[in-house]
Write a protein that binds this DNA or RNA. Structure first.
Length: 114
DNA sequence: ACTTTGACTATAA
DNA sequence: GTTATAGCCAAAG
């Protein structure tokens, strides 16, 4: 088992696996960790991800609707949107365009990470 | 050890 | 489409 670390560390590892130009949801990450109901904890982990090393691409994590719920935690409300657009993710009205298409399920790589 | 909280999610109206 | 409510789990106070 590689994840003998705390819950946060596991979240960080999964989050760092998100491919560029893709996004995922908090619930999906939680489910990939085996703690399906702890989706809120995933978001909390992101709140401390600023101290994580290496940096965690928290901007690639949105809620299950593709809404940039955590944008307010990036210093500037538009920071998250800009970071995503930089990676080719189209944002419209604080929502990921074609979210269903670019959604990346961490569980797909969680098996390989083991 | 107890209470509060939080970047969520699912269901209902 | 929206808002409201409840369930959820782990860390912080």
């Amino acid at each position: 088992m590689i994840w003998e670390e705390s819950f946060f560390e596991r979240v960080f590892q999964i989050t760092r696996l998100i491919p560029k130009g893709r996004v995922t949801s908090y619930g999906a990450i939680a489910r990939a960790l085996g703690t399906t109901g702890s989706s809120r904890m995933v978001g909390w982990a992101m709140s401390v991800s600023y101290a994580a090393k290496p940096s965690v691409p928290a901007h690639r994590v949105v809620n299950r609707n593709g809404l940039l719920t955590g944008k307010h935690h990036f210093g500037s409300p538009d920071r998250m949107k800009q970071l995503l657009e930089q990676e080719g993710v189209q944002i419209e009205n604080d929502r990921v365009k074609n979210f269903k298409n670019i959604f990346w399920d961490p569980a797909s790589l969680a098996e390989l990470a083991e």
